[in-house]
Design a binder for these strands. Sequence first.
DNA 1: CTGAATCACTGAACCGGGTAAGTTGGCAGA
DNA 2: TCTGCCAACTTACCCGGTTCAGTGATTCAG
Lengths: 337, 337
Amino acid sequence: MKRPTIADIARRAGVSKGAVSYALNGQPGVSEATRKRIIAIAQEIGFNANSAARALSGARARAVGLTLCRPARILGIEPWFMGLISGFEAELGAQSYALTLQVVASPEQEIEVYRRWWGERRIDGVIVTDIRENDVRIPVLQELQLPAVVIGGPGETGSIAQIWSDDAGAITEAVRYLVALGHHRIARVSGVPDLLHTQVRTKAFDEICASLGLDNTITVPADYTGEEGSRATRRLLIGGDRPSAIIYDNDVMAVAGLAVAQEMGLSVPGDLSIVAWDDSPLCSLVHPPLTALSRDISAYGAQAAHELLNAIDGKRVGNVEAARVHLTPRGSTAPPR
Amino acid sequence: MKRPTIADIARRAGVSKGAVSYALNGQPGVSEATRKRIIAIAQEIGFNANSAARALSGARARAVGLTLCRPARILGIEPWFMGLISGFEAELGAQSYALTLQVVASPEQEIEVYRRWWGERRIDGVIVTDIRENDVRIPVLQELQLPAVVIGGPGETGSIAQIWSDDAGAITEAVRYLVALGHHRIARVSGVPDLLHTQVRTKAFDEICASLGLDNTITVPADYTGEEGSRATRRLLIGGDRPSAIIYDNDVMAVAGLAVAQEMGLSVPGDLSIVAWDDSPLCSLVHPPLTALSRDISAYGAQAAHELLNAIDGKRVGNVEAARVHLTPRGSTAPPR
DNA sequence: CTGAATCACTGAACCGGGTAAGTTGGCAGA
DNA sequence: TCTGCCAACTTACCCGGTTCAGTGATTCAG
């Protein structure tokens, strides 16, 4: 019942442990005949190298870490993280790396987890999301020399690899589209203001609105949750100079906003046009289906994992832009009445 | 820059490696004074035991595995898995166990992953979800003697721990509630029919409907996705003898069903009442908010993790029922017009 | 035919903790 | 003063791969 080791294989093949190691790892040092024989025996007895022993003798842990720093109730509903995770998996699985997950409550706790993981040599690198301005995690990662890739930005990450999508371009496209439909009063419900990509979006939104001569544009900060999305929407729709279109920073808030509009007896898209950020199945699930800024989150994740594996291999990696975000028009946008 | 080992601590404390090991693990064999001194040094230099070395010397890997066997596009939107995961974390984190995740395409691939993980000693146990009748994974887990806990059921899992919620009771409550409101034609859109808990629900649904003398009750099988939820709903609403209430096996299909009803000009709850299974934020996000069968998914996950840790510790565990499912009435149910 | 190079492999050290078995020193009791 | 005993350590080996320095056999050039 004991799980087989290379010593068992060595005994059965009549060679030394060393030879078995060379044979199984494709290293030179054994003849082709012996290699084949050893591989056959390994397969026959269902051998899998003990990852602990392997990691201990200087090699990799063959695992990467991901922390999720949002309350469970948001994590659950947001398609973003799951999309990202399955993207990671596609890339990591191919290289037989494992993904280790931890839910944390704060960036400080996240740093603790990084320190522990790295100290324990449990992982070879980490994927960092929800990057902020002057993010406290960056200097720690540099101090630890822990291979990492940062998702979101672009921002200051020093020597750490970074992958980002062109959020500024995306929001510009959305505003231009709404203006082309005839909208003048465009509002925005943003995600957490601290996050770098929120700032990028806010800046780009303000700029394009100014350059198109729109006034009364407003960004209401929220936190990606449905509750905040509802609250922000109510605030916008109650006011005197009601916007005719709202851009939301994620799909959950957009759906919540749609519900508020319906509840207030406003027709979508007749009285209010809605644009969601990140096109998840959620957007096509509701009625009317939501116009969204789409990007392939899975591919984004796969690309991030790829960069991380490069960083782990010591290859210098830089600042990578992910695939373009594009606007997918659906039933929630139309010319204002 | 090298990460510290117990040998470093031993040198600084002027004792042997063995003494350090005893001190840090709370074992007898060192005086309190020495123990304190050693712990202080460990803290000072930021020592973390190398998990590989620890795992190698007979101890635990201190990690558990979870595979997700659904396409990414469903995983993303379904709050269920993320809820479960954060529940696991709450329990695992407290015992400083890590969670290793893998997305797989089929039960066969899932088995491969279990074999590999266990062979590599990467994990100490696994959490198995989406259990089917005569599930192919059960005999493999028993053969490998891999500690496991099965979520869903109740069903035949032999010696493997199991945790389940009273789905039969829940659906009975939902049907009784709808009948009390005055509904006679109640339909149901189910999840994947192979899954054990789907079968439990279907059986209970048929039984309670029969015992209440309802005819024309029908269960349309679907697969938890929004698309299938829409399709099934359309099929039900197009038919001659339209149901006045539909119970959905998850929240995503319920939301999709709501959109279909709105699209067809039916008022909810006036023309159609809707009940969702699993009360996620999604249910209160839409308009009208959905009546749902609520359960604390996180607590469910925490309980499962707890049972698994017991199983890993060799404690015999059995068949545990999770906290009750209860009906949360909201705006999507009312007496039929 | 000899010396050098190459090949196929062995043996042993090593990674960093865990732990059984052995070794002190100090103190109590006779 | 001697024995016995215990706490407080030390020593040494284990876990299971990886890797490096040999070693004997064979090949090959000169």
